[in-house]
Design a protein around this nucleic acid. Structure first.
Lengths: 223, 223
DNA sequence: CTAGAGTTTTATCAAACAGTCAATATTTCG
DNA sequence: CGAAATATTGACTGTTTGATAAAACTCTAG
């Protein structure tokens, strides 16, 4: 009999393998076409099994999608989780940017899945965003504000700072086609991401480094 | 008889009106669900006409989509087109950022349609990107390089600079739900965009303003 | 080895889907 | 007005899609 949610039933070897294959195939499809645009047939085909067999493991299309989202969100917020109040601000931010960019490089499908969901109004994860994402961002924004009050980094709206880090890093995964059209095929994906990392560090870290201590060029704008 | 592509036939009042309504409804659907996820039925319903009637104006689903994309691209590239070599660099860039942000505010559906298309690998507009977007970016990147050589702005990879302006501004349209979850409902869309504009100007303009002339804080990184 | 749990397949269904067609209704214009 | 051009509709087609049922097969623990 199939495992029911009520009973705590241990998973079979085959169950584990197949669920893994299904979720991988589903990630491919959902990230490329969104929830509505993806089809069970294609997911099944990509996973190398028949549609009814797939539906034996996930009874409904939406179940696959939700399983995918659930395992994604934690992983996705990991870099921000790691942002630590006790470290020095600039190295902390530098490593946050690096991590985000590495995730865009190493998990572009996950990035696109997430982008698709938000783009379509996040109908299936809005609650999760409110209960998990919001508090986390609030917490980390408070850390950033602390650094700003202490004069360790320049003062800006920390939430918009976070938005800009998200958008610039994820851009390299979500808009990869466009990036490739413009940068040309020379240099591999590796080279592209190195250039991006260098640029983004310049953009964010130089912008945040306090410039007022030496009496040199005055900083232009404080919010 | 219906207008054929071969003959240059003038459009009827009704034709103009209905095509307008269809494209508007289609924008709504395609931007929310992508090409595959959108359905003709829904577009027809949203446009307030029967499906066969809609198909009288656009014979295939793809025709609607292509008409939308065609009219979108020019409009979308307008702000970058306007970037002018003869102006002063910082005001030019400031007004470019403003325009892009205004477009995200005033045409979020267009932004999402574009994002959806790129996200899905741009199967339908990759050629257009190569023939129109690429040369435009090359041209404007050259202008930026000129300003950098003249020491008017700091030296960075101009193409990555453009990417970061695109991604940060469009983020406020494409990821609007997420932005709202985090910023909260207080302040309207107007307030959100004003805050964003202020933040982005700080981020980009302060970062680009040359800091080496006064002998103050040395600039940290040149690519 | 074998009984039962777990897995896979074949056949099937109703709904949704893109698109067609011929008949009807409406508008345009001489 | 009235005929031709244009616009709209209802009925329909073939296909895809999400989902189910039951039979057949395979694995595994005792």
């Amino acid at each position: 009999m199939k495992a029911r949610a009520t009973e705590t039933q241990r998973k079979t070897r085959i169950q584990i393998e197949n669920e893994e294959r299904i979720l991988d195939a589903a990630l491919e499809e959902f990230s490329a076409h969104g929830f509505r645009g993806a089809t069970i047939d294609r997911i099944a085909e990509h996973a190398g099994m028949s549609k009814p067999n797939l539906l034996y493991y996930f009874r409904r299309k939406q179940d696959i999608y939700e399983a995918l989202i659930a395992r994604l969100l934690d992983k996705w917020l990991e870099p921000l989780q790691a942002l630590n109040a006790v470290g020095d601000p600039l190295p902390e931010l530098q490593s946050y940017i690096r991590r985000k960019l590495e995730m865009a490089r190493d998990f572009p499908r996950e990035s696109r899945l997430f982008a698709n969901e938000i783009l379509q109004g996040a109908p299936r994860i809005k609650r999760l965003l409110e209960s998990e994402l919001k508090p986390l961002v609030d917490e980390k924004a408070e850390i950033l504000r602390g650094w700003m009050r202490a004069g360790q980094i320049n003062t800006v709206d920390p939430r918009h700072l976070i938005f800009s880090i998200w958008s610039t890093t994820q851009h390299y995964a979500d808009f990869d086609v466009q990036v490739q059209v413009i940068l040309g095929p020379d240099r591999g994906a590796v080279g592209r991401f190195e250039d991006a990392a260098r640029y983004l560090e310049t953009l964010f870290l130089d912008g945040l480094r306090p410039k007022d201590k030496t009496g040199g060029t005055p900083r232009v704008r404080d919010l």
